[in-house]
């Protein structure tokens, strides 16, 4: 990182300066699996997420969309950040405010972001939102010290999004949306885990990742774009 010189240029010349923000345990590769057959669109995931991260009103880090196809089939599609391996947002950021960590999580440095919103234009999933005004704060939020992993208090003029609850992952805890979903449903629709361990869990049930995706026809949103998301979906009707 530095004036007009990027990571890739360093890679080409064979020198790799450390971006300390991107350091993480690379033995972990965090992934999420969302079972659309189980999702009933209650929106508890969004509420749980917003509550635990003090997400400003009008902004959602995970949004539940209602999908209806021409034949009348209807299902719900929760959309967190996809944490793409080939992330369009990371590519376009002019200042490296958004970056991909060694554990595959895309984070935003709210102290570096200049608010140009190019990442929002580039994201094919609309996973990013912008603080158009100074958000309303709560005392608990303001008491919390800001860090890139736990980016609140929220602030005006920067882009924010889901950060895969890396702060919880570090403590061995599941993300806020996963816990909220399982608490509501009993058998939660959202699973989280480590790709290297080949297992994802919703808190009550653990699934083998590769086998589940293979047998249940797991897919990724807009696979054709080549963004290689770290979020998989299981189809809305299991065969």
């Amino acid at each position: 990182m530095g004036l007009l010189i990027s990571d890739r240029v360093f890679e080409i010349v064979g020198w790799n300066p450390t971006d300390f923000r991107a350091l993480a345990d690379n033995r972990k590769q965090w992934v999420m699996v969302i079972d659309l057959a189980r999702c009933d669109g209650c929106g508890e995931c969004t509420k749980g997420c917003s509550r635990e991260h003090f997400v400003p009103e009008g902004t959602e880090w995970i949004t539940v969309f209602k999908v209806q196809d021409e034949l009348g089939a209807q299902y719900f599609l929760p959309r967190p950040c996809m944490h793409c391996e080939n992330a369009p947002c990371v590519k376009v950021c002019p200042v490296g405010a958004t970056f991909r960590r060694d554990d595959g999580v895309i984070l935003i440095d709210h102290e570096r972001c200049i608010g140009c919103r190019y990442c929002m234009a580039a994201c094919p999933y609309n996973a990013r939102s912008f603080n158009w005004a100074e958000p309303a704060h709560t005392p608990a939020e303001l008491a919390h010290p800001y860090s890139i992993e736990e980016p609140w208090p929220h602030r005006v003029g920067v882009v924010e999004k889901c950060m895969f609850c890396v702060h919880y992952a570090k403590q061995g805890k599941l993300p806020a949306c996963v816990r909220a979903c399982t608490a509501e449903m009993g058998d939660g629709a959202i699973f989280f885990g480590d790709m290297r361990e080949d297992a994802v869990s919703n808190g009550t049930e653990t699934l083998p990742l590769a086998e589940t995706l293979r047998e249940r026809g797991g897919f990724r949103f807009k696979e054709e774009l080549g963004t290689r998301p770290r979020v998989w979906y299981l189809p809305p009707r299991s065969s």
Binding site: M1, G2, L3, L4, I5, S6, D7, R8, V9, K91, V92, C93, P94, V95, G96, A97, R112, C113, I114, G115, C116, R117, Y118, F130, N131, V156, G157, V158, V159
Partner: peptide, 17 residues
């Protein structure tokens, strides 16, 4: 959104963008 941070373009500019 943050014109006050325009200096970051010089400090952290990335040529891929």
């Amino acid at each position: 959104g943050r014109p006050d941070r325009i200096i970051n373009v010089f400090l952290y500019g990335r040529i891929e963008s």
